[in-house]
Design a protein around this nucleic acid. Structure first.
Length: 377
DNA sequence: AAAACGGGGAA
DNA sequence: TTCCCAGTTTT
C-alpha cells in the first residue's frame, strides 16, 4: 500500500495506475515514430532526449499537425542544431524558415527564448514553473518539456488529452469550463515511471485511436475504462460551446512589378496578423476596396489596375482582398520595400501574399517543372 | 473571460 | 464546407 502522505495517486487506488499501465503497454507496441521522439525502447536503454529538440518540436506543434511540422523540424535542426546556433541566427532568417507554418508570433518567441537560454549557458530549465517563464512556453509546453525531456511527472494536457479524458469520464461540462477538472484527472493518472512516455502515449492515443470523429474504440487499450463507450456515443465528447460567427474583413493589395521583374514587398509590423512576414502592400482592414480609394491607399502613385480579388478563409475570420497591379517604373522609390525576383518559386510565401501575387500576375508563384518536357526525338 | 492568431488535412 | 490540430499571448 502506498504511504498515506502520497497524494497524487492513492485517492483513486489502483485503477488509475492500471489505466496508465495499459496505456504504456499499448504505447510500447503502437507508438508513432516521429523525428523528434526517442522511442520507448531506446529510452529504456538509456538514450536521453535533447531538450532543445523537445522544445523546438513542442513549439512547432502548438496548434499545428504532426505532418505539417515534420519537414520544418528537420529543416530547423539541420540549419540550427542547438540552441546556441539558433540564438546566433538573425531573426529574419528564423522568420523566413518559419514561413508557411503559421502563428508567426511563435517564431519570434522561439528566437527570444533561444536568446535567453543561450545567454544563461545553453541549458533549459527543468522545472515546469521555470519553463513556464520563457517566451512562447505556456502551461502545455512547460509540462510537455518537463515530462518528455526531464522525466518529471507533469500533467500534459493538450487537445488530444482533453478529448481522451472527457471520454474516459463522460464529462458533460463544456470544454472551456471543464479544463481544471480535466487537469486534476490527468494529474491523478500520471505514473511515477515514464511520465514522458505517458504524455506522448495519451497524445498518440488521441491522434490515432481516440480521434475527434469516428474513434476506433475497438482498438483502444482503455476501452474497459471508458465511460463514453458505455454511453454508446463517445463522439459526443468533448462537449464544446457553439463558436462565434466569423467576421468578414476587406482590404486591397497592391502588386507592383519593377522594370527588372522584381516584385516589391514590404515587411509587416512584428505584431498582429502575419507579424514580421513580408507581404505585398495592403490597406488596413475594412478600408474601401474599390477603385475610388486606390490612389489614396496605394503605397506610391502608379497606373494601378484592378487585377482580381482573393477570398481566404482563416480559422477565425474570412478575408476579401481586392488586388491591384501596376508596372512600377525604374525610378519608383523602393527604399522601404524589399524586392523579390519574379522567380519566386523557391520561397515559402504566406498564403495570402501568394494568392495576391497570383491574382495580379497569374503563374508568378507557380513552381517551374525541374526539367522542361522533352520533345520526342 | 474573450479575442487574436495560420495553415492544412480529414470527413 | 466545417472541424480542429502536441496552445500562447494580449486585451
Amino acid at each position: 500500500m502506498a504511504p498515506l502522505d502520497q497524494t497524487r495517486k492513492t485517492d483513486i487506488g489502483e485503477a488509475g495506475s492500471d489505466t496508465a499501465s495499459r496505456l504504456l503497454a499499448w504505447y510500447d507496441a503502437h507508438h508513432r515514430e516521429l523525428p523528434w521522439r526517442i522511442a520507448p525502447r531506446a529510452l529504456a536503454s538509456g538514450t536521453r532526449p535533447d531538450p532543445y529538440r523537445v522544445w523546438l518540436s513542442e513549439v512547432m506543434l502548438q496548434q499545428t499537425t504532426v505532418e505539417a511540422v515534420k519537414a520544418y523540424f528537420r529543416a530547423f535542426v539541420e540549419k540550427w542544431p542547438d540552441v546556441e546556433a539558433l540564438a546566433a541566427a538573425p531573426t529574419e532568417d528564423v522568420m523566413k524558415a518559419w514561413a508557411g507554418l503559421g502563428y508567426y508570433s511563435r517564431a519570434r518567441n522561439l528566437k527570444a527564448c533561444a536568446d535567453l537560454v543561450a545567454r544563461r549557458g545553453g541549458s533549459f530549465p527543468e522545472s515546469e514553473a521555470a519553463l513556464r517563464e520563457l517566451p512562447g512556453i505556456g502551461a502545455y509546453t512547460a509540462a510537455a518539456i518537463a515530462a518528455i525531456a526531464f522525466d518529471r511527472p507533469a500533467a500534459v494536457v493538450d487537445g488530444n488529452v482533453e478529448r481522451v479524458v472527457s471520454r474516459l469520464f463522460s464529462i458533460a461540462t463544456p470544454l472551456s469550463e471543464a479544463k481544471p477538472e480535466i487537469r486534476v484527472l490527468v494529474e491523478r493518472m500520471v505514473p511515477d515511471k515514464r511520465p514522458g512516455d505517458f504524455a506522448q502515449a495519451m497524445m498518440d492515443l488521441g491522434a490515432t485511436i481516440c480521434t475527434p470523429r469516428r474513434p476506433r474504440c475497438m482498438l483502444c487499450p482503455l476501452r474497459a475504462d471508458c465511460s463514453a463507450i458505455l454511453s454508446g456515443d463517445p463522439e459526443r465528447f468533448p462537449v464544446r460551446l457553439p463558436k462565434a460567427e466569423k467576421p468578414l474583413r476587406r482590404g486591397a493589395a497592391f502588386v507592383a512589378v519593377r522594370g527588372d521583374g522584381a516584385i516589391l514587398l514590404r515587411k509587416r509590423a512584428d505584431k498582429g496578423l502575419l507579424g514580421g512576414m513580408t507581404e505585398v502592400p495592403t490597406t488596413a482592414w475594412t478600408a474601401r476596396a474599390d477603385g475610388a480609394t486606390t490612389d489614396a491607399a496605394a503605397p506610391f502613385p502608379a497606373n494601378w489596375r484592378r487585377a482580381g480579388q482573393i477570398a481566404h478563409v482563416f480559422t477565425h475570420f474570412a478575408l476579401e482582398l481586392d488586388v491591384f497591379h501596376a508596372q512600377a517604373s525604374g525610378d519608383t522609390p523602393v527604399g522601404h520595400f524589399w524586392s523579390l525576383p519574379s522567380d519566386i518559386s523557391g520561397e515559402a510565401l504566406p498564403t495570402v501574399m501568394k494568392k495576391a501575387i497570383e491574382a495580379a500576375i497569374p503563374g508568378a508563384t507557380k513552381k517551374p517543372s525541374p526539367h522542361p518536357a522533352k520533345r520526342p526525338a
